[in-house]
Amino acid sequence: MNSVLKVNHLSKSYGRMEAVDSLSLELAEHTIYGLLGRNGAGKTTLLNMITGGMFPDGGEVVVHGRPLHKGEVPTQVCYIREKNFYPNGARVRDVLQMASAFHPDWDSGLASRLLGTFKLNPRKKMRQLSRGMESMVGNIIGLASRAPLTIFDEPVLGLDVLMREKFYRTLLEDYTEHPRTILLSTHLIDEIATVVEQVFIMENGSILMSEEVEQIRERAYTVSGSSAVIASFVEGRRVIHSEGYGQVGVAVLYGVLSEQERSEAESRGLLIDGVPLQKFFAYLIEEGQGNE
């Protein structure tokens, strides 16, 4: 596995607030990742440090095998910010042309095709665009850059469902033909759940969980039934969330559950079911806060 990005014990605080707290993660080549967290979890600070826009108080960022020194900007990286700084007096096609100068693998054919796909008028000025169309300009740049590491921060902000789907579909299509490492930072898991291979769940500046989405689907489950039976069942298991109403209760758990354990539990009257991902993450984040 070739490492495209490695982050070691990265920290950054604003005054007394720890925005990023000794965070480590690694991205392999040719993989799509998700960075999930609520607003204010520290995602944007982390991404700004990875791309050299801000400097960590401690720790290390290694991009394509090269440590990033203070003041340096990594090459072969395309970072599409949530809040872009494109000149608002420029036309869409000018912004695309300007962006192309910074990406050696730029595909201008793709850029102009995507203008059509996403129904963007290239003659419009940036200041005339809606928030969603603005996001799309960034997304076109991110896709057409074909950068070996492409990072999108909240790429579907302001977009309607149809356009969101179009974006993710296009991303998958282009990724299939031109594999590269893509990191999607968002607070909405459901939309990226089938698109990404692995997710990092971030809260309070740390990674709560780093796992393949498929694995989470396999390992996250709820048990419901009699409170007493649940209490004995969850013993020694990782409980993400639990609530009870007198005699009955429900618990969200995480871990491997063998067929035998499952049928045993069921024979004791427990009902075992899956958990929707978005719910699972919400519980996980809640749990993370409780542990502080």
Binding site: G53, E72, V73, V77, R81, N84, F85, M98, A99, F102
Partner: peptide, 11 residues
């Protein structure tokens, strides 16, 4: 400054 760095320019 921000515009250029946002495009991916080095300082």
């Amino acid at each position: 400054f921000r515009t250029m760095l946002n495009f991916g320019d080095s300082r």
